[in-house]
Design a protein around this nucleic acid. Structure first.
Lengths: 347, 347
DNA sequence: TTGTAGGCGTTATCAC
DNA sequence: GTGATAACGCCTACAA
């Protein structure tokens, strides 16, 4: 039974042209069409031409679902990120997605909101799609996630963190060292009463690593670590709360390291209101280098994570593991990236 | 031939437990397992229990790819957005993805960088995944995209724009009216020499609609429209260039509408350097209400698009069309959202 | 270089 | 309420 296009009428089908329709029109075997699409070198020029015409005539779009099922490995790659809309991760997603789509892979995205339980759900959901690879954020996961990732037998990349001797491919940086970097910078500038303001989001474990780096440097110099934990939920409010608590006291902080630039934004706004001058009264170092960080008054001295680079390199490492490309040795060793301290007005 | 788990050894397979493995362990037919997962009401309590146990024992994760192939409609939804990392669209993505995943759908994401050709590529790639629905940004597409969307016979949603009498489901707002809104606001404040600064990104067609709205209001009042087109690529630079050109002249602009807040950020920084006082010397209205907009000095009067709402409502409309949920009539009519003018210091 | 047979894991269809 | 069977559209394996 044929419909008006000469296609066989299917009981269930999607209605779209299939590889068989193309093959019939081009008068070749379907497998030749498949080869034409995947390994064009193996198909003769003559058949290639006929096939190309048939594809165009039928508006054929290969069914990736069927292909994925047949090859038991789909051309999707899942990515779990704490926060899609956060200023910090968007660049990683963007560059990841861009490089990926150039190689015919699609990005499946989910957000965990810094909850490792939500991350587990996302990973579980992704696995149902037989992804070619998975990308997660950070090194801290639930036991179940660890196990899912281990048994998935696909490339797994951890971004936004770095820990030697871990199984997954790492493309990130050491948060601990970022904490050290910030503390040393301030110490070297002569500050001694240096405080650290934690993130208001409890699930942000990486921020605790940065705190630990700060603590280590303080102890190195026999200074007492001074940690402030905001009890506000909103980042701006937390920042305000922190700077008030740390500066409006008898022995105020000379310098403050904030867990991220969002907190700083709140702090700086509060400072403008109270005429707190930075860095004269209090120096500030943030983390993240968000778009706004250079626009604040004072502009913000902060540590810039290699967000875009992580996305790019993660993709390259994945594509290499999948045999899609071969990358230089240089790239293959780029597990551990570094953050740059951007010196501006606030410290 | 069975392996150690009692599963039949497959020549190709993924190695994961299949619905058949579950069925065998639970001693039921595979279709009953399928029903247990999709329509639990139709399965007796006794079998349900056995199946649940088997699923847990085997760590069974349904293969969505196979399911998608069999049902010719996968549980993925594709979304094309101009810019993932842009401050403006991220909220739409986030809320869209969140509601979606609550209903068991996955988000496929691609960015167009304001190029309708890239959008076409993305749509084509998405269609290969038999998505349950597609979301695109804006109402301007290539002919081919229009055709792809029309023949896909799946729900299509256009966000971030609104145009009556278009075929796709619309969840957005009128950029033309936003342009009018900004112009009227400034006119009502007494400004007459009002200029409009276009976006430096040529592909941002919606920004031209905003410009047209501004032009219309100016002509309404018999004022001469004054449009500045930056020739810089970078938004901050464009903003600086624009404010310099529009204010450092004999008859400077009294007020400026910028195509977006990124441009304004550059302009305000330039103004701080030249001691241009806003709004005294020049009032400014932006568009987007980015995170930084309230932090600038002066804080920015701007028009806030309903980014999060668009994502949420788009998802609801899609899920409703797919028969997943039923929404109130109220929501069903929410095609046209409105933008709020946020009054701050700059105008 | 090209083709044939059969499987990938699930669901639609129909029968009991 | 439950199950057998046949698609779904492509790809791997093997053959010619």
């Amino acid at each position: 039974m044929r419909d008006q296009n000469g296609n066989s009428r299917k009981r269930r089908g999607s209605g779209r042209a299939t590889i068989h329709d193309v093959a019939r029109l081009a008068e070749v075997g379907s497998i030749t069409v498949s080869r034409f699409l995947k390994q064009p070198d193996l198909v003769s020029a003559e058949l290639s031409l006929r096939i190309a015409k048939a594809i165009a005539a039928l508006h054929y779009v290969p069914n990736m679902v069927a292909g994925g099922l047949a090859s038991t490995r789909g051309r999707v790659i899942g990515m779990v990120i704490p926060n899609i809309s956060g200023p910090i991760f968007a660049n990683t997603i963007q560059s990841f997605s861009d490089v990926l789509s150039q190689h015919g892979y699609q990005l499946l995205l989910a957000s965990s909101y810094f909850s490792i339980e939500q991350e587990e759900n996302a990973v579980r959901a992704f696995l149902g799609w037989s992804p070619a690879a998975l990308v997660v954020t950070g090194q801290y996961h639930t036991k179940a996630t660890e196990q899912l990732l281990a048994t998935a037998s696909i490339p797994v990349v951890e971004t936004w963190d770095y820990q030697p001797r871990r199984k997954p491919i790492q493309v990130g940086f050491s948060h601990y060292e970022v904490g050290q970097q910030a503390a040393r910078y301030l110490y070297d500038k002569g500050y001694r009463r240096i405080a650290f303001v934690q993130n208001s989001i409890a699930g942000d474990i990486s921020a605790l690593d940065r705190r630990d780096g700060y603590v280590a440097v303080m102890q190195e110099h026999r200074l007492k670590p001074w940690i402030f934990i905001p009890n506000e939920a909103a980042p701006f409010e937390s920042g305000k709360q922190a700077i008030d608590a740390l500066t409006m006291r008898k022995h105020p902080a000379e310098a403050i390291i904030f867990a991220n630039d969002n907190l700083v934004a709140g702090a700086i706004l509060a400072g403008q209101r109270t005429n707190l001058r930075m860095p004269e009264h209090c120096a500030i170092v943030g983390f993240g280098d968000y778009a706004m960080s250079s626009l604040l008054l004072p502009s913000l001295t902060t540590i810039r994570p290699p967000a875009k680079e992580m996305g790019e390199i993660a993709t390259l490492r994945i594509l290499e593991t999948l045999g899609e490309i071969s990358v230089e040795k240089k790239v293959r060793r780029l597990n551990r990236l570094t953050c740059e301290l951007i010196q501006r007005e606030s410290a």
